[in-house]
Design a protein around this nucleic acid. Sequence first.
DNA 1: GCCGTTTTCGGCCCGACTGTTTTCAGTCG
Length: 562
Amino acid sequence: MEEVNSRAAALLALMGELLEISGEDTFKVRAYYRASEEIRRLTRSIEGMTEEELLQVTGIGRAIAKKVQEIVRTGTFHELEEAKARIPSTLLDILQLEGVGPKTVRRLWQKLEVETLDDLEKAARAHRIRGLKGFGERREREILEAVQRRRTSGRRMTRDEAETIVRTIAGAFEGSGFEVAGSYRRGKSTLGDLDIVTTASPSAVNQRLRRTGCETIEEGESRTSVRCGEKRVDIRFTRREEYGTMLIYLTGSKNFNIRLREIALQRGMKLNEYGIEEKGKGETRRFATEEEVFTALGMDYIPPELREDGGEIEAVMAHRLPHLLVESEIRGDLHVHSSWSDGHLSLDQLAEAGAERHYQYLLCSDHSSTLGIAHGLDGEAVRRQISEIERVNRDSECTLLSGIEVDILADGTTGLSASVLKDLDLVIGSVHSAFKQDRDVMTRRIIRAIENEHIDIIGHPTGRILGQREPYDVDMERVIEAAKDGGKALEINASPHRLDLDDLFIKEARERGVHLSIGTDAHSAQELAYMRYGVMVARRGWCRPSDLLNTRDIKELLEFSR
DNA sequence: GCCGTTTTCGGCCCGACTGTTTTCAGTCG
């Protein structure tokens, strides 16, 4: 959120990592991680917060409150600077390796003077690691492999990449059900690995997995891990009558599980992935569904997308969890391209594809002509497209709305003139050039577009492309404020390569009452199905149906643009 | 380092799996 908040969150997390390597008490380490997470999620700026106000935030006590204030004043805090002087920061790269934790990092550093990935690779190749007590040949080889994997990949998966892997291994579960849990089920935009729960028999699955071409990492009766195309997949076997607790456990998040188990303890129960044990009774109650588990804990059901320990537990206790948007409430897609610019479908085919998805409308939003590569439309082409859309709409179940995705030029003006834009049903303004502008220039550029009376929606507001391009430097705080003042909408771009806005900004915009719209940015009929990703991140941002323009019927929608 | 309808001190989520262990520490989720 606020720049200073993310800085403080990063520094507190860094402190946690350094303390881990120093061999500090794990509870102290956890306290830093917890405080970091809380500050990252905070919607107000820590700048100007008093110590007493900071203490109101759960997970922040006297000591961390003072450090936070020191960060606001000086940009860092002295314990952190001391720790950094003591511990080489390059050790953090080693800590990130698969199978390498803080104790290992510390020993490699102190015994073998390993400080960098290069040092580690050399030590492994020279067989110096196997000489350490507690390490063997095998461990040395695994460390070396982890270093090499880091060098070749390490990038997180997009959701469509994850789905490809799921399709590859689905055959191994044939006959029995399986469900992808973990961050996938929580609707995260990118995924580090995949977690699968199944009631299938371990031996059958293990045997079939070997034929999928995935490499086995470990194999057991209750858990098996494989690597498919460099990505790790963890599979947990469970009995049908324990499915509910196992699914909760494997869906996470980790912090959510910790909170849930703490709540169970407070109520005299012990929760694990097999069930709930009433304290002192020694007898475990089992649950086939998640709903039953939440009920047993005295809670309403919490949808997976909210399970981040980001306020949902407090909300559910107060019975104030929002009714989240579901995909069937979406009445249309508010960002699609046709063959008039760089899309694959004609206007007739678009209308047909929309009707197949039972949509009332599709916003046809081709590029404007300033974007050369995309064969954009000029004013003349826009006029011809409008009359062509009128023709298509005469006998189509799904109405095409006339629109454009107009470039927001470097100075904040638009790539098409007002005389063209005024005749369109809805106008999306997007940044497609000059990404390197500094924060203030970029922010003012986008705000100028928001203030343009003809622009209704800001497309992919931060410009990120997952795993490829960082967001441009923009103060979303100010953009959200401007969108609120101007009554304009911010887009949730549902392309799995963008998912922009992200969930935290969605949540903030929603809380401030800013309109949001979901657009798939589809260039083909299949890509209209990206809507599910958009709904997923909207749910992660706590969106109710009324927060989205897409749930309006066509008449209400057009009122928005007036 | 944080926290309190058990507690202002003494707890802090819980279990699977691995390697090199002769009884368990480290890592992971």
